[in-house]
């Protein structure tokens, strides 16, 4: 397979601050690469360089075989960019926005109009097509923004945090739209701080932190780095953690983690439900109130924690903006 995007040794500095410290990555044609990292990791800087908005300080980047610095004009004709903030003109209607962008991609008048119509339909904006974008909800604006970047059928699409700030329902809808694009064969580079999003949409992932690539691979490969399943339980008070840890210690296949603040205990295990049953049997002899217990397969949060020593997202800000994630429900009771 040929690579639609090739990035080698990309460096970008803003004054004293090194935003990218030599990033390498490739995206095969027709696949989705998830570029993961917390805020400020450098994800947006990568996208801005690839979409010709910023010049790199060192290194090389190619999109569709074209150099993003020396062949910037040709690169622009073959890409679509959806930035972090929906860049739609709020005074224009949805249709006018799309036709304008179509004309600026040098489509003929008639083609711009027919493409706009198709995309409005595809992104379920036909009813709102003739209203100024100012009246659109956040989800509708994002859809319009993505539709605009698709108007000239780009071969590579950059989506910079396409669901940040959307409510859970709009986010699920957006995932479906992006999923459809993928099945059309569009190559996508997607940045996100939502691990679940990358897990769901991306074929391969590159995890960056502080401008450096810290891991890459498929979701399964990344999860394998953290190890297999874990047994997790929560007790009523932190003092009980010690007794519980002692009782379950022999079952652990590695380091046992305890967190006093959340009163949780987590240990890598093997053996699936047999081990769970064994754990329950052992706990019967311990004076502790177990609030919940379950087997959990690792998710990308674990990957992040293991790789960087800090969580992918700030938990405090998390509750409203995170996708609803039933993924870890597993055997929890």
């Amino acid at each position: 397979m040929t690579n639609a995007v090739v990035v080698e040794g990309l460096v970008k500095r803003f004054g004293e601050n090194t935003a990218l410290g030599g990033v390498d990555l490739t995206v095969s044609e027709g696949t989705v690469l998830g570029l993961l990292g917390p805020n400020g990791a450098g994800k947006t800087t990568v996208v801005r360089i690839l979409s010709t908005l910023l010049l790199p300080d060192a290194g090389r980047a190619e999109v569709n075989g074209l150099d993003v610095v020396s062949q910037a004009d040709q690169v622009r004709a073959t890409i679509g960019l959806t930035g972090q903030y929906a860049a739609v003109d709020e005074y224009l209607t949805g249709r006018e926005n799309l036709e304008m962008v179509g004309r600026l991609y040098r489509l003929g008048k008639r083609e711009a109009r027919s493409r706009a119509g198709q995309l409005l339909e595809r992104f379920e904006l036909t009813d709102a097509a003739n209203r100024p974008a100012k009246t659109y909800s956040g989800g509708m604006r994002r859809r319009l923004d993505i539709a605009a970047s698709l108007i000239a059928r780009p071969r590579v699409l950059f989506l910079d945090e396409p669901t940040t700030g959307l409510d859970p329902r709009s986010r699920l809808g957006m995932w479906e739209f992006i999923g459809d694009l993928v099945s059309d064969g569009t190559t996508i580079l997607l940045t996100t701080q939502y691990l679940e999003e990358a897990d769901r949409l991306a074929d391969r992932m590159v995890v960056i932190d502080k401008g450096e690539v810290i891991a890459r691979g498929t979701a399964d490969e990344l999860k394998a780095q953290v190890g297999g399943e874990r047994l997790e339980l929560t007790v009523a008070s932190a003092e009980q953690l010690a007794d519980v840890a002692e009782a379950l210690g022999p079952l652990a296949q590695g380091e046992l983690q305890r967190d006093h603040q959340s009163r949780r205990l987590s240990l890598p295990v093997t053996g699936g439900t047999d081990t769970l049953a064994e754990a329950l049997r052992r706990l019967a002899g311990v004076r502790a109130d177990v609030l919940d217990i379950g087997l959990r397969r690792p998710d990308l949060d674990d990957v992040f924690l293991t790789l960087t020593g800090h969580a992918a997202e700030e938990k405090a800000m998390d509750d409203e903006s995170r996708p609803t994630a039933p993924a870890t429900a597993g055997a929890q009771s």
Partner: peptide, 17 residues
Amino acid sequence: QKGLIDRFRSLPMSRSA
């Protein structure tokens, strides 16, 4: 501020338009 200049700059349009 609204990101429209970014959008325009990512399009294959004339640089002064």
